[in-house]
């Protein structure tokens, strides 16, 4: 049985990869990479899901069966690293626009 979040992960990764393959605008490439990162986050969260469980927080917990906490912690790490990567790539895109006056990644090569 294939869960619904895995189907969503496939759809998101294909969306991001199609944008990576067919678009040349650098902002759209950065958005595609962030979509792929979000798909990976969703995959990590959905691997740690246990059926009929609550969030792993003991404050007024509705039940004591809890989902796995370690994938959620690693997803927190992954979210922050995605944010850092996207910010750095956007600044590179701005720098590219200042140098060459375009955002088309196919017009200019970075080295040469």
């Amino acid at each position: 049985m294939i869960g619904v979040p895995f189907i969503a992960v496939i759809v998101l990764i294909l969306l991001g990869l199609s944008a990576l393959l067919f678009k040349r605008n650098m902002i759209k490439i950065v958005m595609a990479i962030h979509i792929i990162g979000s798909a990976v986050n969703l995959f990590l969260i959905s691997t740690g899901y246990r059926a009929d469980s609550a969030a792993p927080i003991f404050s007024n917990a509705p039940k004591l069966e809890m989902v796995l906490p370690t994938p959620q912690a690693l997803t927190l790490t992954s979210i922050v690293i995605n944010l850092a990567i996207v910010a750095l790539m956007l600044s590179f895109a701005i720098l590219f626009f200042k140098y060459y006056g375009t955002l088309d990644a196919g017009k200019r090569r970075l080295f040469g």
């Binding site: 049985m1 294939i2 979040p5 189907i7 496939i10 959905s46 691997t47 899901y49 246990r50 059926a51």
Partner: peptide, 11 residues
């Protein structure tokens, strides 16, 4: 890959 991964909601 997704079809061969272990089933959802039972790690």
């Amino acid at each position: 890959a997704v079809a061969s991964v272990r089933p959802f909601a039972s790690p």
